[in-house]
């Protein structure tokens, strides 16, 4: 009973939209941190071991593509809530 009242109040106050906005923001922050760390670590790795640059680049590309896909997925879910 109390839960349903709370849910109704939340729906009336537009908390779902607030949640979607916060979710999208968190996804963007997470993706930004992830890609930044990947890029930084890759540059460091290449500077330390230039002979393994090719392998590092390949892993960099795959990891950043994964982060990209996950963040897009999250943003789409948040877009549907709005």
């Amino acid at each position: 009973m109390l839960l349903s009242i709370l849910l109704q109040a939340a729906a009336g106050a537009g908390l779902a939209k607030l949640g979607a906005g916060i979710g999208a923001g968190l996804a963007a922050i997470g993706a930004g941190i992830g890609i930044g760390r990947i890029g930084g670590s890759a540059m460091e790795g290449i500077a330390r071991q230039p002979e393994s640059a090719s392998d590092i680049r390949m892993n960099l590309i795959i990891a950043s593509a994964l982060i990209d896909a996950v963040s897009l997925f999250t943003v789409v879910v948040c877009g549907f809530i709005l």
Binding site: A42, M43, I46, P50, A53, R57, L60
Partner: peptide, 8 residues
Amino acid sequence: PRKLVNVY
């Protein structure tokens, strides 16, 4: 190799 990462 560094330039290639920058371009990516």
